[in-house]
Design a protein around this nucleic acid. Structure first.
Lengths: 236, 236
DNA sequence: GGCTCGTTTTGCGCTATCGCAAACTGCCGG
DNA sequence: CCGGCAGTTTGCGATAGCGCAAAACGAGCC
């Protein structure tokens, strides 16, 4: 219904190199949709009927094991695409997408992708860059999980969240959407309990301030130091 | 020099949907190169001068931390592309590629990519699929590292290696290139020692047979069971 | 204003896995 | 044929982090 102002999205990586009228044509194919907090945009295993661009809000993409355990694949911030399953050759979504805040998305039916890509090859190369960047990030995540202790991984995770979705405060940065200790545990490969212990410790030290699904980094720099330093003693 | 027979590579995912003469044109841009066992194809941080297609042999892609720890990102089997750094927008290689066996590659100078993609947009979409598949695999890896014990992760790793590069034997499957316990540790996020203990245990049970940089899966099915089963007791 | 439920905190024992050290082994080079 | 060395095995503490249990807390609802 309500059309999206092209100028609002023209600068996004997905549309890099597009003229106004091309952009128009692409946007015409999308419909916009609103999801309330905790609403499901799509579910793991469901048919990949659409791909999305987040306009407002925040989306959590999570993957579930057969035994019911979950990990958070990533948090989607406004301006990012998600649900690209079909673009990478999948017929079903490999993860579940849930709005963690009231969110507004642009959705293109899967069927439009081949046509759009054919007409606008730059869409494919732009998407390739995006997916490639995510691959790099995921490799970094594997590297961290392999070589760092939980405390450092949590520190890195918070810094990334702050960078991606941080709201600057007078003193510190607040993560701009509701996120629980459990969520952080699922991002870093640990347990709710361990995250809680770590954050409590940091709060004692005045590094952060926490609340119910809220985290404020009061001393980002000190957390950065924590994240980088080798646990205990390094190799001489 | 020696031209590559197009029919040998025509069926690869990278070239899906290409006619013979298009293929020819693409192949003409590549040069082939040979790397001896343990030769470096490129190094992490080095300028991304080329992208590659592996024709023969096996390549190990590994990422190193500032402190010198490594993880194996993946093993490249013949027919797969690697070193796609520039296609995904990187100017430097994010990992080091080493031949684990005498290997032959096809190499395209980075500069050819934009031109090739412009002329053959399907290259971009094919590559997108490939990179997307790798992203999925990496997410699976994160999931495993987050939710499974070391023994199961090792089992999964061996099964994947066997599937990708296994040589069928009378009784069992042999991994077709030299791979050390250390390598497996770096694939699963554990230590050389733990891998050695696990494999020794399995060898006792007759599940595998090992040697210096060699692994034979004698009972793939039993290993599969090991890989899938929840450690200890699952939830009732 | 009081209640309820989801989130967070915290205590405590347990153990999978690490980390170090040392012995062993099969290949490769000379 | 004889070292020497990289890769492997194994033993033995040390411990980070898990898992369970329970209490404290706080936001929203009635």
């Amino acid at each position: 219904m309500a059309k999206v102002d092209p100028s609002l999205v023209a600068h996004l990586p997905l549309f890099a190199g597009f003229k106004g009228e091309e952009l128009d044509e692409i946007l015409r194919e999308a419909r916009s949709a609103r999801y309330p907090k905790n609403g499901h945009v799509f579910e793991q295993g469901g048919d990949a009927h659409s791909f999305f661009l987040l306009l407002h809000g925040h989306i959590r993409a999570a993957k579930t094991t057969p035994t019911g355990e979950q990990i958070v694949v990533r948090y989607v911030a406004p301006g990012e695409t998600f649900g690209l399953a079909m673009a990478i050759g999948l017929a079903q979504y490999p993860a579940t997408a849930t709005a963690v805040d009231d969110s507004v998305v642009l959705a293109w039916p899967t069927g439009t992708w081949p046509r759009l890509v054919q007409k606008f090859p730059a869409l494919a190369t732009n998407t390739l860059q995006t997916v490639g960047a995510r691959l790099q990030e995921t490799h970094t995540r594997v590297l961290e999980m392999s070589t760092q202790q939980v405390e450092q991984r949590v520190a890195h995770a918070l810094l990334r969240l702050a960078k991606q979705s941080g709201k600057k405060l007078d003193h510190g940065v607040e993560i701009d959407f509701p996120i629980s200790r459990q969520d952080i545990a699922q991002m870093t490969g640990t347990t709710l309990h361990t995250v809680s212990r770590i954050l409590s410790g940091w709060e004692q030290l005045g590094l952060i301030e926490g609340g119910r699904q809220r985290i404020i980094l009061r001393e980002p720099h000190k957390i950065f130091v924590l994240a980088e330093q080798n646990a205990g003693g390094g190799q001489a």
